[in-house]
Each structure stands twice: as structure tokens, then as C-alpha cells.
Write a protein that binds this DNA or RNA. Structure first.
Lengths: 95, 95
DNA sequence: CTTGTTGTTCAATACTTGTTAAAGTACTGA
DNA sequence: TCAGTACTTTAACAAGTATTGAACAACAAG
């Protein structure tokens, strides 16, 4: 992914941090990282201890900043953690 | 720094991300990282393009989560970026 | 003593966001 | 077709937060 300007890239980095700045969303990402395979909505909601409605809300934000991707298999949604995007944003500070 | 529980550590990580999730604060941290030396309030405010009042507000939050420390020399305040804290929080995701 | 610099605090406002409950969609199996 | 599962969306509300401007404190220089 490329950006038109340096500030647009900074805005995007900020959006990733903002998404991770919410404890519930951080737990979602941590849970996805602790697994090897992708997870369904009910799995995540159960492990994080929130309703599906709230999960939708939070995953929307994680998808919006590119940290998660979603695919559908029948009626179940499956979330995948974009580890590269995560590492790239963190790596900016590690040198 | 040690934590009483795993969730307290997660809360703290989230607070660092939350602080960086605001574009203005991310620019403050980026600016501090781009320099070798610490910076005064007026220097940061000028480079980031905000008022001193707003700078105080944002630096308070960056100090609260341990990303910045402040010292006084006469009437000028000098901010120092805690690179270790930053790298430690990011490193959690880099493995 | 007055003026200017540097930072801090306060109050007010406008905006954003986390959470809940309820209603809606879509697919599955009996 | 009916009930159940698995999300999705919407509306609504409380709480939090970014920003501004004004007032204030502390110090230095003229």
C-alpha cells in the first residue's frame, strides 16, 4: 500500500495505534495472535467476553485500519490477522 | 516496570497505543525521534504547529503513559522521549 | 518596575467513541 | 415452514477528549 503524502502515511499509522489503544480491541488482536488459525466471530466474542454486536463494532475498526481481514464461509464470518501490517507499523519505531 | 496482573500490563500497552493513536501526539513523538537531543516546549509546539496550551495537554498524556519525561531548566521545560518504553511496547508484536 | 518569554491551568464547546438493546438479515437443519 | 444460529445494523446515551481562548505564574532583560 502506498500513500500520496507523508502525512497520509502518518494518519494511517495513527489509525492503527488508535485501534490498538482500546483494551477490548487489543485483546482481540492478542487472541488472534495467540492462535495459529483464523477465528470465527463467536470464538473471538467468547474468548474476549463480549457480545457479537460489540464484536462487530470493534472488528469493523480493525478492518478499517487494515489490521484484520474478514471472509465469509456460509453464515459464519472468519477473521484473519494481518501480521505484516502489524509488524510494519511497529517496525517504524524499532529501526 | 512490573505489573500485578497480565491484564494490567495489557491495559498499559493499550494506553501507550492510545496515546500514539492521536495524530498530533504521534507527530510529537516522531519529531522527538527525528532529533538527537531533547526538545523544549516552544520547539515542539513550533514544529508540530500547535499552541503551547495544546502542547501541555498532549504531553501530559504522553508523560502519563511513560513515553515522555519532563525536566525543568529555569522557566523552560524540556521533554525527553523514552525510547526503551516505546521499543518495548512495539517489540511485543514483533517477536 | 515593565515588558516579553515560557509554560500551566481552567472553563467552555464541539466532537468522538464505547456500550447496550432491539430489530433485521441470512443461512442451516428438522 | 419453523426454530435456531451467527452475524449486522441502527438508534440512543453516557463518557471521554481535542481544541480554543483567557487568565495566571515564574523568570529574564531592559
Amino acid at each position: 500500500m502506498t500513500y500520496r503524502s507523508r502525512s497520509a502515511a502518518a494518519e494511517h499509522r495513527a489509525s492503527v495505534f488508535k485501534a490498538l489503544g482500546e483494551p477490548t480491541r487489543l485483546r482481540i488482536v492478542d487472541y488472534l495472535r495467540s492462535r495459529t488459525r483464523d477465528a470465527t466471530g463467536t470464538e473471538i466474542a467468547a474468548h474476549v467476553g463480549i457480545s457479537l454486536a460489540l464484536l462487530c463494532h470493534h472488528t469493523d475498526e480493525l478492518v478499517a485500519c487494515g489490521l484484520l481481514t474478514k471472509r465469509k464461509e456460509g453464515q459464519t464470518s472468519i477473521w484473519h490477522l494481518n501480521g505484516d501490517r502489524l509488524a510494519a507499523t511497529m517496525g517504524h519505531f524499532v529501526d
